[in-house]
Amino acid sequence: MTSREELGGLLGEWVTATSSSTGTVWQGRLVGLADLPTLVLLSPGGGQVSLPQSFDVQRAAPPAAGTPPPGAAFRPFAELRDTGLLWLINRVVLHPRGLALALHTDDAGDVLGWSLLTSEDGDPWTFDVATDSDGHTRAEATIASALTEMS
């Protein structure tokens, strides 16, 4: 656990705060200390989090733009296809506008990049019934799983 004196020396600095009991890590700018005892971090995205001072707090470099918080689960882009989320993005947002999000893969199936495709006639893209049903089932399962993990 980082002492109150050490925390005072870190005010205004980018830090990581690690829970010794769970291993959970937060990153942010240390912007406040309270008598509860509590420390207040300003997250890279702008939100604030208040944590008990029973954390190990270390000075950290500012995160690069677009960097997820420490401990965030990374998933490969190819999972957009496997989870049904690519279907959902295309079906709900892009296809009605005559666009499609395409993932470009190498021979091993690793996603190298993406592009937006336009339909030749400008009309909305459509899926056959089986593809629609399968995509919907996979997307709903992915969303349900994410909501369950959050609660």
Rank of each mutant, 00 (worst) to 15 (best):
Thr2Asn: 05
Glu5Val: 06
Glu5Ala: 13
Glu5Tyr: 00
Leu7Met: 09
Gly8Ala: 10
Gly8Ser: 10
Gly9Cys: 09
Gly9Asp: 08
Leu11Asn: 05
Val15Ile: 09
Thr16Val: 15
Thr18Trp: 00
Thr18Phe: 00
Ser20Gln: 12
Thr22Ala: 11
Thr24Val: 10
Thr24Gly: 01
Thr24Leu: 08
Val25Lys: 04
Arg29Gln: 13
Ala34Asp: 14
Leu36Val: 02
Leu36Trp: 01
Thr38Asp: 03
Leu39Arg: 01
Val40Arg: 13
Leu41His: 04
Leu42Asp: 11
Ser43Trp: 04
Pro44Phe: 02
Gly46Tyr: 01
Gly47Arg: 14
Ser50Val: 04
Gln53Ile: 00
Gln53Tyr: 00
Gln53Ser: 11
Gln53Thr: 06
Asp56Ile: 09
Val57Gly: 07
Val57His: 05
Ala60Tyr: 08
Ala61His: 04
Pro62His: 04
Ala65Asp: 11
Gly66His: 11
Gly66Leu: 13
Gly66Asn: 07
Pro70Cys: 06
Ala72Met: 09
Ala73Ile: 12
Leu80Tyr: 14
Leu80Pro: 07
Arg81Pro: 00
Asp82Trp: 01
Asp82Thr: 05
Leu88Met: 15
Leu88Cys: 12
Ile89Gln: 12
Arg91Met: 05
Val92Trp: 06
Leu94Thr: 09
His95Ser: 11
His95Pro: 00
Arg97Ile: 04
Ala100Pro: 01
Asp107Pro: 01
Ala108Trp: 01
Ala108Arg: 11
Val111Glu: 06
Leu112Asn: 05
Gly113Arg: 04
Leu117Pro: 00
Thr118Val: 14
Ser119Trp: 02
Ser119Cys: 06
Asp123Asn: 13
Pro124Leu: 03
Phe127Trp: 11
Phe127Ala: 10
Ala130Glu: 15
Thr131Met: 10
Thr131Ala: 15
Asp132Phe: 01
Asp132Glu: 15
Ser133Ile: 02
Gly135Asp: 05
Thr137Lys: 08
Thr137Glu: 11
Ala139Pro: 09
Glu140Arg: 15
Ala141Cys: 03
Ala146Tyr: 10
Ala146Asn: 03
Leu147Tyr: 08
Leu147Lys: 12
Glu149Pro: 01
Glu149Lys: 14
Ser151Asn: 14
Ser151Arg: 15
